[in-house]
Simulated scan of single mutants.
Amino acid sequence: MTRFAALTLVVLGLAVLLVPPIVQLDQHLVDLSQAGLPPSPAHPLGTDEVGRDVLLRCVYGLRVSFMVGLVAALVSMIIGGTVGLVAGSLGGLPDRLLMRCVDGFSSLPHLLLGIFIVAMFAPSPYAVIVSVGVTHWTTAARIVRSEVLSLRERPFVEAAISAGASRRRLLTRHLLPHLLPHLLLAMVLMVPHAIWHETALSFLGLGLPPHLASLGNMINDGQRSLLAGDWWSSLAPGLFILAPTLAVSVLAQRGRDRLNPRMRSELAL
């Protein structure tokens, strides 16, 4: 499963990187003579209701989803990592106040809060990135805080404190190198979640503009085609959402097992 997941991501990544520069997609194309064509050698995944190639639009939509997912996950990691690092390092009253803020923010429905944030901007990828990034930082904050609290009890950290290491040196030389693998793993796990939220927002008409290739927009447009029997218009973008998110989840699970062998052995019992 790990090799298959890696191969899936490699193939999709190459398609996202190589296809758009080679094959240009006219986002405003309307060719009713080619509308609703079933899968064929000329159009492997058929065409949509206005004659656009579904496979090409899926590749362009996946490129947008990857971009939004990666940038939104990075924004979440920066916000959450900073909050968790400050809370775990300072302890005491600052820790309690920050974590109560995290608990309060976590109690809010992410999707509804994301819809509220996106509604304040014009439909664009940047609005979706801000929406997903601002609503998903609490998990990273908890992960970083728990790791900092664990590291503070390690002998090498206590030795550095006893030797008179400054707070800055303690963070940069002793805490951050041990936190980076956990942050990267949390960021990887955040990417599929961000892709799903971007798709949901676009499906609701609050993400990207309707004429742009987006997997959520394609599923929304494909609803009308289902009544005419054009099942491929909705199935293809759904598979392009499912495949990378499952592949990333499998690889992230493998990375977590390698990062924490004790958890792997406990789960195997």
Rank of each mutant, 00 (worst) to 15 (best):
A87S: 15
G229H: 01
R52S: 06
G81P: 03
W232M: 12
L204F: 06
R57S: 13
R168Q: 12
A194H: 13
P192R: 03
A163D: 06
G36F: 02
S106M: 13
S107Y: 01
M190V: 12
C101Q: 05
T172I: 01
G92N: 06
N260C: 03
V64L: 14
A140F: 06
S234C: 08
D31L: 09
L251Q: 01
L259V: 10
L184V: 04
L235A: 12
V68Y: 03
H43L: 10
P21C: 05
R145M: 02
Q27R: 15
V11R: 09
A35R: 08
R57I: 13
Q27D: 15
V23G: 15
F240R: 13
P209A: 10
L37K: 13
Q253W: 02
R173H: 11
L206F: 10
S202T: 07
Q27N: 14
L246S: 05
H43A: 09
R152G: 07
G133Y: 07
E266M: 12
T172Q: 09
H136Q: 14
L151A: 00
P20V: 10
P20W: 01
L112S: 04
V50Q: 06
A122L: 09
L183Q: 13
S146T: 08
D103L: 02
G51M: 07
P39V: 03
P109W: 03
R262M: 13
A268G: 15
P209C: 10
L246M: 12
P192K: 08
L226D: 10
E198P: 07
V118K: 07
D53W: 01
L235P: 09
Q24H: 08
W137R: 12
V83F: 00
P94K: 09
L18H: 09
I79N: 03
A163I: 02
L204Q: 12
A42D: 07
F156M: 10
R258Q: 07
H174P: 04
L25H: 13
D103T: 14
A160S: 14
S33I: 02
L25I: 15
C58Y: 00
P209H: 04
F105I: 14
H193P: 07
A165T: 04
L269N: 13
W196G: 14
G114T: 00
E147K: 10
F156Q: 08
L108C: 04
V130F: 12
I241G: 15
V30F: 01
L98A: 10
V118A: 15
L176T: 00
R154L: 09
R142Y: 01
I143D: 01
L14Y: 05
C58I: 05
V191H: 04
L90V: 15
D26R: 14
V250P: 02
A119L: 10
E49K: 07
R173T: 03
L269T: 01
L246H: 07
L206W: 00
A160Y: 03
R167I: 09
S150P: 12
L183R: 02
A268C: 06
G13H: 07
P237M: 08
D26S: 03
R258N: 11
A200E: 11
Y60P: 09
G81C: 08
G205F: 04
E266A: 13
L111N: 11
T138D: 13
G164W: 02
M67W: 03
M218G: 03
F116R: 06
P155F: 01
L170S: 10
S233D: 14
P192A: 09
L204T: 05
L208W: 06
P44G: 11
A127L: 05
M263Q: 12
V10M: 11
